[in-house]
Design a protein around this nucleic acid. Sequence first.
DNA 1: TTTTGTTTTGCACTCCAGTTGCATTATTTT
DNA 2: AAAATAATGCAACTGGAGTGCAAAACAAAA
Lengths: 126, 126
Amino acid sequence: MGIVRKTKSVKILHDEFEKSLAAISVTTLIERFSAQMNKTTIYRVLDKFEDDGYLHSFLGKNGHKWYAKCNGCSSSNHSDAHPHFQCSNCGKVDCLPADVVIPKIPNRIVDVSQVLLQGKCEQCYS
Amino acid sequence: MGIVRKTKSVKILHDEFEKSLAAISVTTLIERFSAQMNKTTIYRVLDKFEDDGYLHSFLGKNGHKWYAKCNGCSSSNHSDAHPHFQCSNCGKVDCLPADVVIPKIPNRIVDVSQVLLQGKCEQCYS
DNA sequence: TTTTGTTTTGCACTCCAGTTGCATTATTTT
DNA sequence: AAAATAATGCAACTGGAGTGCAAAACAAAA
């Protein structure tokens, strides 16, 4: 079950994701809002946001969790097959609009695909 | 720096990866060889194997580390852009020979790409 | 607006993958 | 065989993530 009550924590976290399309790591949020809320709350609210189809989650290059706004996802249908891009210089992570072509694999059914690209982003690209 | 001395632990782990092409998670190795060696040793030997270009590592669906034999990698050149496939039923992970086409991203340089596909493997595919 | 029922939150844990320091042991070199 | 150095084991630590439960916040009813 997703978000039921609009509490202070829910509003703060919602606003944060509305500010930009960039993905945010859980640890960043914990650090950023340590004065406003407990880390447990952050984990729980993000979890519910994902249930609602408002955010989607994925793992960054060291296996840590990131969240970003969904584009056209609902709670019943999560179409987050898009790749994510993590800058190896500044650490910023973005969702890429592009589609990755998953090759047909004989005798296997592919349900989910996670694509993480690493390199230099627009700003760090000299 | 990679492997320098051929110790008992090095031989055991090397043999294990020679037995099959399937990837093995670190936790599996720790459990499997708990009688023969310490988990710290396992982490360190795997690290060196990767330095040597003998193994490559990647993260499974829950962010845990897996290792598999490299195909045509050396310590100076790691070309592990191939996708990995993790079965959602039996948990087995394989390296896929196929190539994933990474779309050209404007104003970004892509150095590394990690592709993890999830679904049903040959055995679990009913 | 006060009461009531339910959801959220904070706290203080626990859990587990992965890492580190250091003394001991094993391997290689001389 | 002795000396030099690399690898190992152990115990402790780190840090992200998750849990149980009592207290607080919220929404709705009275």
